[in-house]
Simulated assay, not measured.
Amino acid sequence: MWLTRITPDLNRRDTHDDLADTVKMHQRVMTLAEDGLGDQARQRAGILYRIETTPDGVRLLVQTREEPRIEQLPDGYGTSETHDLQPQLDALTAGMSLDYRIAANATKRLATVYGAKAGKLTMLSGEEAEDWWRQRAEANGLHVETLTSARQESARSGDQRRPIKHTITRFDGSATVTDPDLLRTAVEDGIGRAKAYGCGLLSLTLNSA
Rank of each mutant, 00 (worst) to 15 (best):
I6N: 03
P8H: 02
T15H: 09
T15Q: 09
L19F: 07
K24V: 12
R28L: 09
T31W: 04
D35W: 08
G38Q: 10
G38A: 13
A41L: 05
R42G: 02
G46N: 07
L48T: 05
I51L: 13
T53R: 13
T53E: 14
R59S: 11
L60H: 07
R65C: 05
P68T: 06
P68N: 07
E71I: 05
Q72L: 13
G78R: 02
S80L: 05
H83P: 10
H83L: 15
Q86F: 09
L89N: 04
L89T: 03
A91Q: 05
L92S: 02
L98T: 12
T107L: 00
R109Q: 11
K117G: 11
S125W: 09
S125C: 12
S125Q: 14
Q135N: 08
Q135A: 09
Q135Y: 09
E138V: 11
L142V: 02
V144P: 06
E145W: 11
L147F: 03
T148D: 12
A150R: 12
E153P: 02
S157P: 05
D159W: 09
I164Y: 08
H166R: 09
I168S: 01
F171C: 00
A186T: 01
A186P: 01
D189I: 13
G190H: 03
G192K: 01
G192M: 03
R193S: 08
G198F: 00
L204E: 01
